[in-house]
Design a protein around this nucleic acid. Sequence first.
RNA 1: GCCAAGGUGGCAGAGUCUGGUCAGACGCAGCGGCCUGCAGAGCCGCCCAACGCCGGUUCAAAUCCGGCCCUUGGCUCCA
Length: 527
Amino acid sequence: MSLVVTDTLADERVEFTADGDVTLYVCGLTVSDDPHLGHARLWFHADVLHRWLASLGYDVRHVENVTNVNEKITARVGEHDEWTAERDVAEAFTATTFDAMRGLNLKRAEVYPRVTEHVPEIVDLVETLVEKGYAYESNGSVYFDVTSFEGYGKLSNQSVDELEAQGEPDERSEKRNPADFALWKAGGVSEAAAREHAKHDHGDETPSGETWESPWSEGRPGWHVECSAMSTTHLGDTLDIHMGGRDLVFPHHENEIAQSEAATGDRFARHWLHVGLLEMEGEKMSSSIGNFWTVPDALEELGVNVIRTFYAGAAYRSEQALTEETIAEAEERWERFSRTYERAVDALDSVDARAKAADEDLREAVETARSDFEAAMNDDLNLREATAALLELTDAVNRHVDAVDGAQAAADGSRDAYDYRGLREAVEASRRSAATCSDSSSTPRATATSSWPASWSSWFSTSARRSVRPGTTSAPTNSATRSGRSASRSKTARTGRRIGSSDSPRGSRTVEETVEFAVRWRRRRRG
RNA sequence: GCCAAGGUGGCAGAGUCUGGUCAGACGCAGCGGCCUGCAGAGCCGCCCAACGCCGGUUCAAAUCCGGCCCUUGGCUCCA
């Protein structure tokens, strides 16, 4: 059985094939703010894809860019005393981004390239495009001529004619066509742009950002070119998979295809995977809308286990709703996994676990779960279905342990036995099904019980044990106590949860307050 | 207006490619039972019945075709 994925460019489900190794490029973050759960949704699904491909035997070469040149970053220069330049701001948010990724237990990419370290490659790429006649210089800036690239619009199904008709003709524009896009922009960040994105008052000194020398002008890289330059540098001309948020299909990814394929003459990406948006009250979670929940805050509040379980509740290509209810569901699911895990471990370790005891129901459930899980994952990484398969297995494990416990408790004093092999196979099946390695340090008990904790929890977390018995975990992170508290938290205590970055200018808000904010914002926006 | 993704039960969310097994998965919420001193957890059952609307194709449509309505994202700057 092989993996099938939904490919945006082909506009259909296609069988994924590659020989030996897979090059995976994930369209990463612009580090102008704390990462939020919307960003993390992409990271999580890229992580699962990475793990699943590895389990299928591929050597995954995963690259994820860090865009650290942007006017939104520049706009925040001066917000704190130590933020004296664009790089300072970018470094601060790169650090919080990496912390967040670490906290979410993501497998590391091979490299996280930064724009600032790839300006020569970007200049090379732009020069190639100019030489080949796909780009032109205008007042020190360089633009890509969309009419020169035959396939322009093929990813987003737009025609150049339509795009041209939509654009506002501007006599003063440096562009030949309204739909052309910048590859190199002369000068620094404009005052208007710096002001628009600023969260504080610049006073007399409006920051203009870093600039670099180029054959055309001292200026800044264009808006889509960094992904082309960095992916090509690290993974070659043709990527196996290019992954990103659905909101980036146009123009970002469309432009990446145009400039990359025009420059190399080769296909840019064999497969395009787009992750659906995370919605909050019907709108996408977005820094600019303000309806966001930062990853650090969510980790603090929910713990990594619940967050990953939440993401596993919907397929990558679907949109997903973040509400009190959907979070509560993830908490319930995670706690259910954890409890069942505890019971299975206790039963396996018990003196009443016998190799000769056999529970056909359990063993059949193991087989079913194993094949259902694999089928679901291969079917376009259907995580909700895959999770369902594991939950069916928890049913069977609980049935088995219940039955034995029931017999033990019977007044007749008989001694019934746990199906050691069945339970152990549940462990093994889960491991093979999930086929992922755990990055976590193992507790002694986890080692003794083979890989169940590693496999089950690896989809969701670092260690299943934390959630139930925080005291026994060997990993000294605060998510241990966090999860432990979460397990015992009453339902009423869940309401009124604070969301939003606590140190953001907006301050901390409840869900209700954020929703109110979003509604007001939308009204204002639509006049 | 244009392009894209969607509109499935109280919620959430699979299924739509390859029409029938889909009155329908898994989970949450709700109800009942078992278990338990009680509760929780766990197990079993129920939840009396959902495929945006209209038309078409077909023996048969959530699934194909056409039209319409609605939601979200993108289409200006910016990555």
